[in-house]
Design a protein around this nucleic acid. Structure first.
Length: 862
DNA sequence: GCAAGGTC
């Protein structure tokens, strides 16, 4: 029997589609990467009985990057990134092992059906899948077709079955347009980012951003925030005047009337109208009206609307809201949270999810009533053909979810119930009055039936005082007419919700990437989130945008993306050649880049006003080995040392504290050493600022401290303080931290393994001898007389930390507090290693016997 | 160290 491989874009879709096509008969198992599942069943294909294997990828399989050597910032001129620098496709997420997974599942298959999302990205992923799988599939017989594309617009039985019955081919042009987009974004984004980062970081010491990034989405996003800032800055308040009238409705009630002219900007004219109305003491009713109006129930919920409400009403940032929604989805509480669609498919089972909520402590009554009296059809929304609107899938309580997960779930559920509820109906009554020559109006709303506002009380029509019953010609006594002087007020900073709307309107980013772009401009310190989740640009953000405006406004205008997308669409529709469009667009941006570089002084003038030059920043810390003057330590991101005499900057390790290290000097270059520390629970090591930036030996790399230095005799080097091979990572060496007493530590110089040992010893040294059993360096320890743990109150002991029975009791293995994901271990690693965080004596379960110190050193520099 | 786009 032949085998048909089918691939969807994500695991959840593979499951839904397999369920539909197999009519629930499939057998499922997890794939080798743990993330994707394979669903198998038998059926017919091309008129023959076949075995189906339905599985998925997780988004893009591949990602685009420069060849390794073009990622060295100080060796490559950013201008080269526009053409010379070659790119390569790398696996997007190496941990998922997607290519291998696809090949294992695809080996020996005869046909492939591509069920990727029906958009350009999906079309591109089709070809990524084919590149991985075609080489291992069975070869076609003669001219028989083996590659098929399923096109569907919703995940419903009819749509999926129709797609299966009318298979087509993947569209190469659409895929190519995505290839072009990837290459453009990469080359343009990286070139501008590297150039402006290097340029401004080389000049200023207080930018407070380790990266001054540029991108076709993030830069216009920042542009919107600065545009609002500029409006606020340039706002000039204007004075205007308003007439306000009060008439006596009843004995003790006065009605406030609105002036039909609303306001005038000329005081004398307002005064004239006031004088004319003052002549009258009655207000004539000119007209009355009563209109039944409706406040519409909301459209079904899509991603961006959820993010807007999460930000404006729940105070949750888009990134956080999205993460919370994803968790609710994987736990089965809500449907897939990334969708543009606001329209339920015709045959969507709305009552099912509603019944789930029928016993909920907060909204059981509303739901039961809807189920009993019949639900309303949801409004007709937009069908983007991706996923149904965000819908609650099972009931949950506040206690069960807690915190933000509950608040988001509650909103999603109330919104869903509202979409199948009835519109809110109210009566709007209006009375128009005339006082002298001027018209005034008074209106009031009375709720007739609350409809959906019952479940969304924050949307309800506020109760107002009812208007008096009257008719045309009636007269009311004027209580007072007065003139109010007011001023126009400036707009406030952009809210996150407003920004999302602007991005959506201008096509900046997608539902899935909008939160990422907003997060980016926050992390780069271009904007800060103020109260009410308003985005206030920082000086850095303002200067950047004003600089782009000065040099080349197109770099920051929202049209930068849409203009490029127009070009890309030509490729997608087969109306232009991929190479030509790519070459042309790159050429345009290369010119823009050179012009930007040539004109950077224009932006620099703005920088000068807000920021201090390197030489004027920071505090004196350690001496330069060249001029022996103090260098200044710049703490603002990225932290570094600057010698203003030599005009040199030395980068330092980030995310930790830097102190002077006892005025000790590096024997190689005479620079004073500094001590880096990741915090009291973590590790610390000395480093030479010069060696850290200019590795002294061939076997060393940039960014190495003394604990990785191979100097043969320096007392701070790896050679002198190294103890033995790390018990967890491949190439690390455990190095004594000479500054850690009296709570002594031996820490790996590669990963975050830390061994705490010999509490209360007042001296620990690495001895010249090695252990006879494991050949690790012996430690020479002097204990405090009063607190010695040694038998018989001895104070001195020399032994191996791994093997010595006395020491084994005094050593405990831990992980440095700041745990880097890279070092956590993962699939493919040996069992029994990693993740051990509790007390565990070094060497006892012996995940690996430590090798002798010299062979550890040898292995270290392979 | 960089972009934007998928998704886990």
């Amino acid at each position: 029997m032949k085998t048909v491989l089918m691939v969807a874009e994500k695991p959840s879709l593979a499951q839904s589609i397999a369920k539909i096509l197999s009519r629930g008969t499939m057998a499922s198992h997890k794939g080798l990467n743990g993330a994707c599942s394979v669903h198998e069943y038998t059926g017919t294909f091309a008129g023959q009985p076949v075995h189906f294997k339905m599985t998925s990828v997780c988004g893009h399989v591949m990602t685009l990057d420069f060849l390794g050597k073009y990622n060295k910032w100080d060796k490559v001129d950013p201008a080269e990134l526009f053409s010379q620098a070659p790119t390569e496709k790398k696996e997007a997420n190496p941990k998922l092992n997607m290519v291998k997974f696809l090949q294992v599942e695809g080996r020996g298959c005869d046909y492939i059906v591509l069920w990727l999302d029906c958009d350009k990205e999906g079309e591109n992923i089709c070809f990524e899948v084919l590149d991985a799988v075609l080489p291992v599939m069975n070869k076609a017989h003669g001219s028989e077709k083996t590659v098929f594309r399923a096109r569907f617009s919703s995940i419903t039985d009819t749509d999926i079955c129709n797609a299966m019955a009318r298979l087509g081919e993947p569209d190469h042009n659409e895929a190519l347009s995505v290839d072009a987009r990837q290459e453009l974004d990469l080359r343009i984004g990286c070139a501008f980012t590297r150039f402006q980062t290097k340029y401004f970081q080389g000049k200023y010491g207080d930018l407070d951003s380790s990266l001054i990034s540029f991108g076709p989405c993030q830069t216009p996003t920042l542009g919107f925030c600065v545009e609002r800032h500029d409006k606020i800055q340039s706002f000039k308040p204007e004075t205007y005047w308003v007439l306000q009238a009060k008439v006596n409705a009843d004995k003790d009630r006065a009605l406030l009337l609105d002036w039909d002219r609303v306001r005038v900007f000329d005081r004398e004219i307002a005064q004239m109208f006031l004088n004319l109305t003052k002549l009258e003491n009655t207000a004539q009713v000119k007209a009355t009206s009563k209109k039944e109006k409706a406040k519409q129930r909301p459209l079904a919920l899509n991603t961006v609307e959820m993010l807007r409400v999460a930000s404006s009403s729940l105070g949750m940032g888009p990134q956080h809201a999205m993460q919370t929604a994803e968790r609710l989805y994987t736990q089965g509480y809500i449907s897939y949270p990334r969708t543009e669609t606001t329209h339920y498919p015709e045959n969507f089972d709305l009552k099912g999810p509603l019944r789930q909520q029928a016993n909920h402590p907060y909204w059981a009554n509303t739901v039961k009533q809807l189920l009993a009296e019949g639900i309303n059809r949801p409004r007709k929304g937009h069908d983007a053909g991706d996923h149904p609107p965000i819908t609650p899938m099972k009931a949950a309580t506040e206690a069960e979810l807690g915190g933000d997960a509950w608040r988001l779930y509650e909103y999603i559920t109330r919104h869903f119930i509202a979409t199948v509820s009835y519109d809110c109906k109210y009566l709007q009554s209006t009375i128009t009055f005339q006082i002298g020559p001027e018209h005034f109006t008074c209106s009031g709303k009375t709720v007739l039936s609350p409809g959906f506002t019952e479940i969304m009380p924050w949307q309800s029509v506020p109760p107002e005082e009812s208007l008096p019953t009257c008719q045309r010609g009636d007269a009311f006594a004027v209580n007072e007419v007065k003139m109010l002087e007011k001023q126009t007020s400036p707009p406030d900073y952009l809210t996150e919700a407003e920004l999302i709307t602007l991005m959506e309107k201008h096509g900046i980013g997608t539902d899935a990437s909008i939160p990422v772009h907003i997060n980016n401009i926050c992390q780069r310190n271009y904007v800060t989130v103020e109260s009410g989740r308003r985005l206030k640009p920082t000086n850095l953000g303002i200067v950047l945008v004003h600089g782009y405006y000065k040099i080349d406004a197109e770099l920051v205008l929202p049209t930068i993306r849409s203009a490029v997308e127009k070009q890309l669409n030509l490729i997608a529709h087969g109306r232009a050649d991929y190479r030509q469009v790519l070459g042309h667009t790159l050429d345009v941006f290369k010119r823009k880049f050179h012009y930007f570089v040539d004109s950077i002084a224009g932006m620099d003038e703005l920088m000068e006003v807000s920021f201090s030059p390197l030489a004027a920043t920071g505090k004196p810390l350690s001496r330069c080995g060249k001029c022996h003057r103090f260098m200044k330590y710049i703490q603002a991101k990225p932290s570094r040392l600057h010698c203003s005499h030599c005009d040199e900057t030395y980068t330092l390790p980030q995310n930790g504290t830097i102190k002077l290290y006892k005025e000790l000097r590096c024997p190689l270059d005479d620079f004073e050493l500094v001590l880096w520390s990741s915090g009291s629970r973590g590790k610390s090591y000395p480093l030479c600022p010069y060696c850290y930036n200019h590795p002294p030996f061939r076997d060393m790399k940039k960014g190495m401290g003394c604990n990785e230095c191979t100097h043969p005799t320096c007392q701070h080097s790896l050679s002198m303080l190294g103890v033995g091979q790390c018990v967890e990572c491949e190439n690390g060496v455990l190095v004594l931290d000479p500054t850690s007493g009296p709570k002594w530590k031996v820490a790996c110089n590669r990963c975050n393994v830390v061994a705490h040992c010999f509490e209360n010893a007042h001296r620990v040294r690495v001895a010249a001898d090695t252990c006879r059993t494991c050949e690790a360096a012996l430690l020479d320890v002097d204990f405090n007389k009063a607190k010695s743990p040694l038998p018989g109150g001895e104070t001195q002991h020399t032994g191996c930390v791994f093997c010595d029975p006395v020491f084994q009791e005094l050593v405990e293995l831990k992980h440095a507090a700041a745990c880097h994901p890279m070092h956590r271990g993962g699939p493919g690693r040996r069992q029994g290693r990693g993740r051990a965080r509790g007390r565990r004596p070094l060497g006892k379960p012996g995940p690996r016997r430590p090798k002798d110190k010299m062979s550890a050193l040898a292995a270290y520099f392979v």
